[in-house]
Amino acid sequence: MAYVSLILGRVGKAVIVLLAILVFNFFLIHAAPGDPAAVMAGEAGATDQQFLDDLRERFGLDQPLPVQLWRYMSGVLQLDFGYSYRQQMPVLDLILDRLPATLLLTGAAFCISLLFGIIAGTLAAMRAKRPSGSIIMGLALLFYATPLYWVAMMAVLVFSVTLDWLPAYGYSTVGADYTGLAHVGDVAVHLMLPALTLGLFFMAVYTRMTRTSMLSVSQQDFVKTARAKGLAPGVIQRRHILRNALLPIITLAGLQAGQMVGGAVLTETVFAWPGIGRLMYEALMQRDYNLLLGIFFFCALLVILFNMLTDVIYRLADPRIKQGAT
């Protein structure tokens, strides 16, 4: 029962945080110079007052700000995220349309970075005193310090333009109309470069964390005990050290998984990946208020969901944690 009420409490808090984010962003976005009507009028190359008034009335922008906020929030409470002024489609449709691409990209990048990061970090920890360990750490540091967008540009230059191995941009081959397995393969090929470049940075992060974490765990008493008992070093590495060293990494990864979704703007821009990060940037530039708010809502929602998921995994991985501890 305590567990259920804990979960309920957390969900309640999450809802409050989400609503607060919406209100905060609402005022933030409306503080920006220009409004969607001005942007659309500007793009039209010609305008007059009647045109602007028409647009503002249609968008409801002629109302006072509190009224607009009230309308928007009461819509959201009924799960209606409004209409994108510019794209002339419901915000929810637009977001759900783009979300899978982003989840695929970040999911792939996340798995790659976590898997290879932990492997590399473990190797580096086991060879802490040897040159090979230093080389791994040197590489990790290098990836960590390189601007992500720069790696992306270089990757396109090398693998798409020069070698012509992988497509430079996009989600699938336009006009090919593949189905079934062929489609999956096509998307996978397109996914390769963006997922790798996005994953590289996080891989470096996890490599470094795994190593540090493993080294510090290996100094703890229970490991010494295990050693004293004469357990094989491999068993100690796997069962005792790695398992315990993974805990802080799970926490960090959970935090970052959510952040990645909103942070993929640069990768999505360079690789023309039709995801939510790019949509967000465009919505911001076009002052497409409803769309931007909707995207922020979903990004925040994902962060919260991942945090909760992390908690669950954490509990599974470490039974010592009791309820109530945060």
Partner: peptide, 22 residues
């Protein structure tokens, strides 16, 4: 027979797509 209008936000990616014949 057809016209495809490709949406590619990054200028360098557009150039690359023209170069490789897409």
């Amino acid at each position: 027979d057809k016209i495809y209008w490709h949406v590619i936000p990054d200028a360098a990616s557009r150039a690359a797509a023209y170069e490789n014949g897409t």
